[in-house]
């Protein structure tokens, strides 16, 4: 079974308040970097065996839905890298 490296990015859905992002934005502003938007996300780089690229993508999706993301507030992106 070939191994794949998959990048999963979890971020807050549009409209969900991100207090950490607003705080970081304010800190950047205090350092002289005014910004008009700032969002945070979390990235997972996961290596695992799968039948093919599509299977790897499906397994990554299942990981997101069962653990990595909370569907109430999160959206996720999956990139099968190699």
């Amino acid at each position: 079974m070939p191994e794949f490296l998959v990048r999963i990015t979890i971020s807050l859905k549009e409209g969900v308040l991100d207090p950490e992002a607003s705080l970081i934005r304010r800190a950047l502003e205090n350092l002289g970097f005014p910004t008009s938007d700032l969002r945070t996300s979390r990235q997972f780089l996961i290596r695992f065996g799968a039948a093919d690229r599509q299977d790897a993508g499906n397994r990554a999706k299942a990981m997101c839905e069962r653990l990595l993301a909370n569907p109430v507030i999160h959206r996720y992106e999956i990139e099968v890298m190699q």
Partner: peptide, 10 residues
Amino acid sequence: PGVFTVNAYP
């Protein structure tokens, strides 16, 4: 239902 997440002032 729902979720408890980071306070508005974190």
